[in-house]
Design a protein around this nucleic acid. Structure first.
Length: 461
DNA sequence: AAAAAAG
């Protein structure tokens, strides 16, 4: 077991150490302790460590330490497999960079018009975080100059090295000048991918953090489906376990949509996330789930990797994932940063191969549990939130109506724009869809021009 | 075998 050291042990800049102190991060996690010296020494790094063990902060601190802010050129490129993860990683980097004056971290993902990104690129940036498609798009249109990039990070590196991303990744790599420092991070590397990954690195520092404790923190339960339908089984589990916050993974977009509709019709507080949704809808659904407005999230594997959602206590696999790696990432949405979690997986007699693979990978013996009996519990609803309007008048609101937030500098941020960073909230501001008409005068109309809703400014009591 | 990622 690797030793965890205090951050003050590493050659991090004073600004970073101060920020870490302010955020109450004193002790580096195992993967951070093991990888930071190598990153700071400029070495290539291959790091495998459990979900929720602090990999993002490890490379974020490394990038930020090596950065020359005085030189306003793109120096680091971070690639992620989904847009939501790229946004989250960028948020984390910005959070850790808040003591560094004038630093610019830019996200380049698809699903939004390129226009704004082009303007930002003309202005300049130090660190780019993005998904391969849009990054390559900007490269080919000659809007993105990577000539001075000295560090490349592949987050969820095993995923990024799969066939689906190979061509794009190759083209992006070709635009980077050698010698560059490469940092590969993931919780999982299948043996073939591990070989491939290490082969593309130059004398890498190989860091593998075995963490039986982490696996043990996520209790796994398996339910053999016989006479009951999958959705019936999910409902029984939800009503019996009454989770505060739960992700349900299904294998296809269509099944996600069906299960979502069914749960919603039956009064569950539920969001959906999959690739058929508009990007703005994806962001809105994820935000409402992450901030507790909605209690359940039904998702495809777009949500399987990396997403860090506070207080997520239950993962349900509506079906078993196609491979052990995906299963590992799915259940790893819970049990993060030392907390405990539960993962319930539904399976059928046809799944014996998958089951055997899971038993081997997790060194467990799977005993099918009986489904909880049907009971008369009602779907749990999030409590109503009492809010106070500027003038002091009180109003009860469903959390699902809260779609905005007030930032520390009293600016109003909207979920619709998809740029809200949860850690920057001073307080939630309720922007109630139900209160459109009553609240017009509360707002600066010019700022609202062109938006499809009106808002009511409220502060939490 | 499916989802994601450019539009």
């Amino acid at each position: 077991m690797t030793e965890c050291r205090p951050f003050s042990d590493f050659a991090l800049s004073p600004a970073l150490l101060k920020t870490l102190q302010e955020l109450n991060f004193a002790q580096a996690t195992a993967v951070q302790s093991a990888s930071l010296p190598a990153i700071l020494a400029g070495k290539d790094v291959f790091a495998q460590a459990a979900t929720g063990s602090g990999k993002t902060a490890a490379f974020a601190l490394g990038l930020l330490s090596k950065l020359n802010v005085g030189r306003f050129r793109i120096q680091s490129l971070v690639l992620c497999p989904t847009r939501e993860l790229a946004e989250q990683v960028a948020s984390k980097i910005r959070l850790l960079a808040r003591g560094i004056h004038n630093i610019k971290v830019l996200t380049l993902c698809g699903g939004v018009p390129a226009k704004g990104q082009i303007l930002s690129l003309e202005h300049g940036a130090h660190i780019i975080v993005g998904t391969p498609g849009r990054v390559l798009d900007h490269l080919q249109q000659q809007r993105l100059d990577l000539a001075e990039v000295s560090q490349l990070v592949l987050d969820e590196a095993d995923r990024m090295l799969e066939m689906g991303f190979a061509t794009e990744l190759e083209q992006i790599l070709a635009a980077l000048p050698p010698p560059k420092q490469q940092l590969l991070f993931s919780a999982t590397f299948a043996p073939e991918v591990k070989k491939l990954a290490q082969a593309q690195l130059h004398q890498p520092e190989v860091i593998i953090i075995d963490s039986p404790a982490q696996a043990a923190r996520i209790a796994q339960q398996f339910y053999l489906l016989e006479q009951h339908s999958r959705s019936e089984a999910v409902k029984r589990l939800l009503l019996a376990l009454q989770p505060d916050s739960c992700v349900i993974f299904a294998n296809t977009r269509k099944e996600v949509q069906q299960l979502y509709s069914e749960l919603q019709q039956q009064g569950f507080s539920v969001a959906a996330l999959h690739g058929d949704l508009e990007q703005r809808e994806r962001e809105q659904q994820l935000l409402q789930f992450a901030n507790g407005s909605l209690q359940l999230l039904v998702a495809t594997d777009v949500a399987a990797r990396g997403l860090d959602i506070e207080k997520l206590d239950l993962v349900i696999n509506y079906q078993l994932a196609h491979d052990v790696e995906t299963h590992t990432h799915r259940i790893g949405r819970t049990g993060r940063a030392g907390s405990e979690g539960l993962a319930c997986s539904l399976y059928t007699v046809d799944d014996s191969h998958k089951l055997a693979a899971l038993e081997q990978a997790f060194a467990i013996e799977i005993e099918p549990l009986p489904l909880p009996a049907a009971n008369s519990n009602q779907p749990r609803q999030p409590a109503m939130v009492t809010l106070e309007i500027d003038g002091g008048k009180k109003q009860k609101l469903r959390p699902a109506d809260i779609v905005g937030a007030l930032t520390r500098d009293n600016k109003l941020a909207f979920a619709e724009i998809g740029k809200i960073q949860l850690q920057d909230f001073r307080a939630y501001v309720a922007v109630s869809r139900n209160a459109y008409k009553a609240a017009l005068h509360q707002l600066n109309h010019s700022k609202m021009k062109g938006r499809s809703f009106r808002a009511w400014l409220l502060t939490v009591v």
